[in-house]
Simulated assay, not measured.
Amino acid sequence: MVRPPLTELDRERGHRLGAILRQARGSRSMAEVAAAAGLSAETVRKIETGRIPTPAFFTIAALAQTLGVSLDVLVEVCTPERAA
């Protein structure tokens, strides 16, 4: 399966997602959060910096649970018409 190219909207949404996750992480280390979510620190870093603008649902669900962030909040932050 070939993935379609990312749009500017996809990239913008990825940066917003990364920012809210970074903020939710607070003073906890990236490695600590990654381990608790069952992910690599590199994956968390790439999501937080927007290098993975469209992460898998289960990846985001694991991070959201670890960070205590509601998926509803993430959807709201990442929905273009609500983020403005």
Rank of each mutant, 00 (worst) to 15 (best):
A64G: 07
V44G: 06
A62P: 01
Q23T: 15
L71H: 08
I52E: 13
A61H: 09
R28K: 13
E48A: 03
R16E: 05
I60A: 07
Q65S: 10
S29R: 15
A35G: 11
H15P: 01
G68A: 07
A64M: 01
S29M: 09
T66H: 00
G26F: 03
I20D: 08
R45T: 10
L39E: 11
R13G: 05
T43Q: 11
P5H: 14
A61V: 07
A31W: 07
T54H: 05
R25L: 09
T7R: 12
A64I: 06
E32R: 12
G50V: 00
R45K: 09
T59S: 10
V75T: 06
P80T: 02
T7K: 07
L21T: 06
G18R: 01
I47N: 04
G14K: 06
P80G: 02
L63D: 02
R3H: 14
T66K: 00
T7G: 12
P55L: 07
L9P: 03
L6F: 10
F57S: 12
E76L: 03
A84D: 07
A35Q: 14
E76D: 05
I52R: 15
A36W: 06
L74T: 04
A34W: 00
A41C: 03
S70T: 08
A24V: 07
L39F: 13
T59Q: 11
R51V: 03
A34P: 03
R22F: 08
F57D: 11
G38Y: 06
A19Q: 14
L17F: 01
R25M: 09
L6A: 15
V44M: 11
T79A: 00
P53M: 05
P53S: 05
L9E: 15
A41W: 07
I20Y: 03
V33I: 14
E81W: 02
E32Q: 15
S27E: 13
A35H: 08
P4K: 14
I47C: 08
T49I: 07
P53W: 00
R22L: 14
A34N: 04
A84R: 08
R3S: 15
K46M: 13
L71Y: 06
T54K: 09
A56C: 06
L17W: 03
V44N: 00
A84P: 00
E81A: 05
T59P: 01
P5A: 15
D72H: 07
Q23C: 05
I47P: 02
G50A: 06
A37I: 09
A31V: 15
A62T: 13
P80N: 04
P5F: 13
I20T: 14
V73E: 12
G18D: 05
A19R: 10
C78A: 06
V69C: 01
G18Q: 02
E42I: 01
T7D: 14
T66R: 01
A84H: 00
R28A: 12
R28N: 14
L9A: 15
T66W: 02
V75A: 05
L6K: 11
T49R: 10
E32H: 11
T7E: 08
R16V: 03
T7A: 09
A37T: 10
A37V: 12
K46T: 01
E8P: 04
A61C: 05
K46V: 02
